[in-house]
Nucleic acid binder design. Structure first.
Length: 434
RNA sequence: GCCCGGGUGGUGUAGUGGCCCAUCAUACGACCCUGUCACGGUCGUGACGCGGGUUCAAAUCCCGCCUCGGGCGCCA
């Protein structure tokens, strides 16, 4: 396989070896076509069945769909071939046969249910929409990393096994760590903050988080991927600028570099990069606008968290990405700083897509006394977080940050109906394997 | 966790008490076909989630369980 050529690279006149999966065999009698597929595309292999060696013809035309073949031959220009070229084979080697009955059809002629696809993810990602989704997901992460580097961030990795219980909110997965109680981490939050106090100042992380909530919706996972950002010497408004920049960078990169994949997903030229300058609504304005839509049976009151229905009503009203700022302090975690002019309000924000929340962030409390007080107010024991709080005694700069759910970003960007489409091997309430 | 709707050949489906030893597409097998590109044609193969019940008769109705999807809750 040393001299393997990718199908997209095959030039007329060359002698090549292409290797890939049997996408389809079309046997017309005296002539037969084998469509071979690799990660770069498809190429046609022609068998003149009466003229070629029987063994060669059999090797090509009797291969079952999705078998792995290596074909050596000459590339010829052929206007009648799908890609304008075809391979006239000299030899065909069966590298790995596929059983004739497949658990799903990778060519996409017959749909398969999501659960069938997830049970057979390898086959599902062989071709078509799923492959396009994960290629785009990779491009998003590439563009996001590049954007972070361009604004001076250092990529970090924080522990996923942690000792302290919840920092608030969610249920955690417990585990035993050499006889000690431990948990799968719900978020890099506290660790990334500790690193803005280091000489790194500006950090980001792309990594998994684990939440043990028994939710059962098309937009929640128990293992998700977060893009976390945290920076010293910025406030929540600047954090929102970076947040918007990251999102735009991701959309632009996909628009520019993933035309083929967008085509497969049915976008063609209709893929739109959002306009810069996302509206920034205060929580109070958000509530008023939701109430004004009349979509909710009961009016929201100040202090309520936004119900799913309210988020959707507001999303439809705004019609694009937007921020919600100035959340009530009491529904934001302890590490979010309160507004100086009104301690009832926090410097926390959310970035919303019309369908759902994408990002949560804010300016952090960097003052030791206020931080410890915040723990107590939320009923948490500051002692348990001493590894965190004590570093606020040694020069913790003002800082702000946020975190994206990667799967939600992919899902909303591509209009996917279920978040599981955006993860290779989703972990949800029911699914632990594969 | 609550509510609603599903589970029928390998895959996706039709079928709401007898007309069903179950429809269609695709797949698979055999044969025919020299330019297909979702190739075409002929013939064939293959299924009612599990357990219990009602009935002369159950894919269809009832109960329990398992399982999938949607809405909500929980969740940032």
């Amino acid at each position: 396989m040393d001299d393997r050529t990718h199908t997209a690279d095959a030039e007329p006149g060359e002698r090549v070896t292409v290797a890939g999966w049997v996408h389809e065999v079309r046997d017309l009698g005296g002539i037969a076509f084998l469509i071979l597929r690799d990660r770069t595309g498809k190429i046609q292999v022609k068998f003149a069945t009466d003229e070629m060696d029987d063994e060669l013809v059999d090797a090509g035309t009797n291969a079952s769909r999705e078998s792995v073949l290596s074909v050596t031959g000459t590339v010829e220009e052929e206007p009648r071939a799908p890609t304008g070229v075809e391979v006239v084979p000299e030899s065909v080697e069966l590298l790995a046969p596929a059983e004739p009955e497949l658990p799903l059809d990778p060519s996409g002629k017959v749909d398969a249910d999501l659960s069938t696809r997830l049970d057979n993810r390898t086959l599902d990602v062989r071709a078509g929409e799923s492959k396009a989704i994960f290629e785009i997901r990779a491009e998003i992460l590439r563009a996001v990393r590049e954007y972070f580097r361009s604004v001076g961030c250092t990529e970090i990795n924080t522990p996923k096994i942690v000792a302290t219980g919840t920092e608030g909110g969610t249920e955690l997965f417990p585990l035993t760590y050499f006889g000690q109680e431990a948990f799968m981490n719900q978020s890099p939050q506290l660790f990334k903050q500790l690193m803005v106090g280091s000489g790194l100042e500006r950090v980001f992380e792309v990594g998994p988080i684990f939440r043990a909530e028994e939710h059962n919706t098309p937009r929640h996972l128990n293992e998700a991927t977060m893009i976390d950002f945290e920076s010293a010497f910025i406030d929540h408004n600047e954090a929102m600028d970076v947040c918007e920049g990251t999102l735009l960078a991701a959309y632009e990169a996909v628009a520019e570099n993933c035309q083929e994949q967008l085509e497969v997903l049915g976008y063609g030229d209709s893929f739109a990069v959002p306009d810069a300058g996302f509206p920034r609504l205060t929580y109070e304005e958000a509530i008023e606008r939701i109430n004004a839509t009349g979509e909710l049976e009961e009016q929201l009151l100040w202090g309520d968290d936004l119900p799913t229905e309210g988020e959707k009503a507001l999303g439809a009203d705004v019609g694009g990405h937007y921020f919600i700022t100035d959340w009530p302090s009491e529904i934001k975690p302890f590490y979010i700083q309160d507004r100086d002019d009104d301690p009832q309000l926090s410097k926390g924000f959310d970035l919303m897509h019309p369908e759902m929340e994408l990002v949560s962030g804010g300016q952090r409390e960097h003052r030791y006394d206020a931080l410890v007080e915040g723990f107590e107010q939320q009923g948490l024991d500051p002692e348990a977080f001493e590894y965190y709080t004590k570093m606020f005694k040694y020069g913790m700069p003002p800082h702000a940050g946020w975190a994206y759910g990667v799967e939600r970003l992919v899902m909303t960007m591509l209009g996917l109906g279920n978040i599981r489409e955006a993860v290779l091997f989703p972990r949800d309430r029911q699914r632990l394997s594969p």
